[in-house]
């Protein structure tokens, strides 16, 4: 048996490791965001100029707001698609339900980049989507509207982040005791009333969690817009990336990243509050 002191030490080490690998990089970013870059060199002289530049420049700010809007659209679309999928899986019995659940989780085991390339080829001029629409007679000729624009970013992100929405919703549905559904039916409720008044409110924590996942992941994603966004699908992630990779203004990039982090944290807190307000 390890002594008390040794146990304390082990515990401290276990707690320190994630703190170091997560908090220290974040802290260094925050420190960098108040520095300035001059001729590709970083000078640490504690200034808020980066933040002022960002908030005072309508181009940056509008890109930022546009990105927030895009992320909201991703959330909305993935909920509209994901909730019915989760619900459908939940309604299935025994092996079918778990087979479908595995299928829904399967994309999580695939490389993000592979999924992106696949979707890009599907949305392209000769892609599956256009071929299908043309052969069904919905389109007369292949359309370019599915790729290299904001819409393409929306579709791609929704598809990629769908599992993150479906799984938490499924889990919260799974937690609803069957007896509650029976009680609702017993008291005279039809399927729709039971869904609206019992199932939906009780699955809210999972729905909020799923929405949060989709939003935060979409917010930080700069690769998807780069791959399928073309010139109109410009997001704040790409701007930040360019500050690091092209403009070599790391402090400015860090300040934008800090703002992004703040927005994500606020959302997480707000979502946590919304979920805790529900008595489930």
């Amino acid at each position: 048996m390890p002594t008390r002191g040794l146990r304390g030490l082990i515990f401290a080490a276990v707690a320190a490791l994630p703190a170091v690998v997560i908090l220290v990089p974040l802290g260094s970013f925050l420190v960098m965001s108040v520095a300035r870059a001059e001729k590709h060199r970083i000078i640490y002289d504690w200034t808020l100029q980066n933040y002022v530049n960002f908030l005072g420049n309508w181009t940056y700010l509008s890109t930022f707001l546009g990105t927030l809007w895009l992320c909201l659209e991703v959330v909305l679309l993935s909920l509209i698609v994901g909730y019915p999928i989760a619900w459908y899986i939940w309604r299935q019995k025994s092996w079918k339900r778990y087979a479908l659940l595995q299928l829904a989780a399967l994309p999580l085991f695939m490389s993000y980049i592979v999924k992106l390339y696949t979707l890009r080829s599907m949305l392209g001029l000769n892609g599956l989507v256009n071929q299908a629409l043309v052969s069904l007679g919905i389109l007369e000729q292949p359309s370019q509207v599915f790729l290299y624009n904001q819409r393409a970013v929306l579709i791609t992100m929704t598809v990629i982040y769908l599992p993150y929405v479906v799984l938490p919703i499924f889990l919260s549905l799974e937690r609803i005791p069957r007896s509650l559904l029976q009680a609702s039916t017993d008291l005279g409720a039809g399927g729709w009333d039971t869904f609206r008044r019992v199932v939906l409110p009780l699955s809210m924590p999972g729905t909020i969690a799923g929405a949060l996942f989709a939003f935060v992941l979409a917010l930080g994603d700069f690769i998807t817009p780069q791959m399928v966004g073309g010139t109109t699908g410009f997001t704040i992630g790409r701007v930040i990336f360019s500050q690091f990779g092209l403009a070599f203004d790391w402090p400015f990039g860090a300040s934008m990243a800090a703002i992004l982090l703040l927005v994500a944290l606020l959302l997480i807190v707000a979502a946590g509050y919304a979920a805790s307000r529900r008595r489930v």
Binding site: P177, S179, Q182, A183, S184, T185, D186, R279, V280
Partner: peptide, 20 residues
């Protein structure tokens, strides 16, 4: 006759109260 059309109501073993 389906459960929601029967003039009977049930007190469930675990009460099955709606928590929300």
């Amino acid at each position: 006759l389906p459960a929601n059309k029967r003039p009977f109501n049930t007190v469930f073993q675990d009460y099955a109260l709606f928590p929300h």
